[in-house]
Design a protein around this nucleic acid. Structure first.
Lengths: 245, 245
DNA sequence: GAGTGGTCTAGACCACTGC
DNA sequence: CAGTGGTCTAGACCACTCG
């Protein structure tokens, strides 16, 4: 095709437009997490562009972890329901650097109304219905993190304790499978705080112990905030790892 | 060229080899921070490959922040001595999300011998000479972080208080300009701790206040650890920001 | 206008997977 | 062996910067 992006106002390259089309197909559920998307050559003829252009679009989506390429097999929609992805957002490491398996213990799951930081960060009005989950994550049998998770009830209304306790896998995997919500990106704000009574009790640490407070907001394909959580990590024997580059 | 990578043992693509060659030129100082490297077409003929192959190599180096592309101008060696890069490794934000300017106050700069975590992380034997810098960073006039920086004296022997106080710019910019050491990547380990007396005094917070402890190791082009630092951040009015994706 | 990076194409061939 | 992604090429043309 030669009569390309002639009338686009502020120039966007063809592969950028293809990328948007692919994201739309992901967002509207045409291709579901874990599924294979059409081959590069098929997409090229569908969109009327060369394979190289489709390739560049897919390259960027793979870099952003929206897609996963597997040589010889195809290109797949990324999913949290995979061993290598199930802890993608977990930055906690044991003091010796190893990545341990962890177990989750549910404390509560109840309906509530939005307020404070959670309401602001989720773009909800005060008082809108939400679901609030509290849980403790243990590493090698020892409680390390306490999480309070707030979700809009408009989407997660069907979430309750039995659903969570029956689920094998991560929260994000549950959201994908049971609610059709795929969270692809999150932002975290870290501070150091002193443990409050309830959290201290759940973690088995002294009140007033220092804890790492981790506030997280996770976003969908459309960049809508869909989950707010406040974690409190006991960093006596674990640390939070990041890379700067 | 058709007689390409015929005898390479475990297949490495051509652009990967070009990438290695480019990194070598960066590491041995053929092209210095801030300088422009040869154009893609010149590199293509120098290496006897197509421009597209050079391009792919440069693309990846630009993604890794080793090079910076500027359309219409050329490709440049990334440097910390640039406004947009001078705070590249600083993840601190004010509580309202803004990025403030900061001022550094030097507490001490002295020769010491390697020991403990610093020795281990810098691959130094106990007792090898190091330079230790302590400083406080203030945001909007208020002290927020206390840093203890340890550097191998074999490279940074000429560093002293007068050099630091005369310098306008970041530490990494100083390392580049005065010591020919470019640090391209760093890893951080975060924990929550209680303030010790000396740090508390320097930051003007109560002893036993919770602080965010940030241990950082920074690496050169050759992936050698060249800087170890232990920061203590007062997160009462600031937070540490990261993105998960 | 000359030079640089950025996009797009068409086609050849290689590497890997699974039937 | 067919199908998929991965690499490489050669060449055309576009967008941007600067003198």
């Amino acid at each position: 095709m030669n009569e390309k992006a002639a009338s686009i106002p502020s120039y966007q390259p063809l592969y950028g437009q293809i990328k948007s089309l692919l994201v739309s197909s992901l967002a509207n559920g045409e291709w579901k997490p874990g599924q294979m998307i059409p081959s590069e050559s098929e997409l090229a003829s569908r969109f009327g562009v060369s394979q190289g252009t489709v390739r560049k679009a897919i390259d960027e989506l793979a870099t952003d972890n929206l897609l996963m390429r597997r040589q010889g097999r195809g290109t797949f929609v990324a999913t949290h329901a995979e061993d290598r992805n199930s802890t993608r957002f977990l930055r906690l490491r044991a003091a010796d650097g190893s990545v341990e398996t962890h177990e989750s213990r549910l404390i509560s799951c109840r309906r509530d109304t939005a307020s404070g930081r959670a309401a602001v960060m989720l773009n909800l009005a005060e008082g809108e219905p939400v679901v609030e989950v509290r849980r403790v994550l243990s590493f090698s049998g020892r409680p390390v993190t306490h999480d309070r998770i707030v979700l809009p009830a408009s989407v997660f209304g069907a979430l309750d304790a039995s659903v969570i306790e029956a689920w094998e896998g991560s929260m994000y995997s549950l959201f994908e499978t049971r609610f059709g919500v795929r969270l692809i990106r999150a932002e975290e704000h870290l501070t150091a705080v002193v443990a409050q009574a309830d959290v201290a009790a759940d973690l088995g640490v002294d009140e007033r112990s220092p804890l790492l407070a981790v506030e997280r907001v996770a976003y969908t394909y459309d960049d809508l905030p869909m989950e707010w959580r406040l974690g409190h990590y006991d960093t006596a024997s674990h640390y939070y790892a990041t890379t700067l580059d």
